[in-house]
Amino acid sequence: MNLKLTAVSAAILTAVTAAPAFADYPERAIELTIPAGAGGGTDTSARRLALILEELLGTSIAVLNIGGGGGSVGASQFMQADPDGYSLFATWNSPLTTVPLVQNVAYSLDSFTPIASTSETAYVLCVDAEFPATTGAEFLDELAANPGMYTYGNDGIGGTMQLAAERIFQAREITAIPIPFGGAGETLQNFLGGHIDIYGGSISTVLPYVETGEANCLVVTSAADVPALPSASGLEALGLGEHETLLWRAILGPAGMDQAIVDQLSDAIQTAVNDPAYVEFLATKGEVPNVLVGDDLAARLQSESDGLAEVSRALGLSQ
């Protein structure tokens, strides 16, 4: 509360003295748009990070959740914000790199100023104990041998999870039936109830059931193996290393932001993400910090967008 009072009084003071715009950024509250509803993975990560950023930047950060359209609604609305550094966008990769491929949206990667990525994790494919495969290689062989026989749950048609899986399936010429759900929780529920054959989604959601033996996770969509899932193969081990797709999160601004502010923010985000408390928090969700800034981040967005464009074209999902 104190923090906010100081921020408010600072804002009023500068308003009165009419100080130059960028000299003492930030001089008022920052609005952080999250293109997903409250309670999800992106939301909790961003809100937690915002708390640390508030201290580092010395201003308050107000969170605005705008869900819908797989993130496109929030992204489109955010795109129109002023690039003054007081409007930031905390998102996962899907609205930026996947959604523009499959939906007719008004924004592209150029509509944003990349500031910094924060954390990442892989998606995972799991089966139950009865499934006739116990390793990643056997799993893909079984799917390849029985085209159209197995159903896998995912986070929505044309979502990054589906494309991550299809990218692997295409490389191995596999046909499996995607069943879109509202999120990993819903997918898990249907997987545990035996309504679908394969769980596809985030690691942290399914992890407890790996420990009870109800889920047997066989493939992760990252190139490397995931330590928490010893039975799952990374794509490198399956000879598909170049088809890696991750779930990762980043903070961006509207296009045309002042470089000085971008630098200030990316420094602050870098410090915040590497804060031990935040790293520990990420670990509980099965995520690891990975900060890329500036051109590196822009390059990552571009290359992922290009890679997924191929997959979605092949699936007939592209606009």
Binding site: R48, G185, L188, T212, T284
Partner: peptide
């Protein structure tokens, strides 16, 4: 089960994870 049935439940689960608990 660790399966949030609505947004409030999802928020409660994320609060528990913040405290290092593993839903499930």
């Amino acid at each position: 089960l660790g399966i949030p049935g609505n947004v409030v439940a999802a928020l409660v689960l994320s609060a528990l994870t913040i405290h290092g608990l593993q839903p499930g």
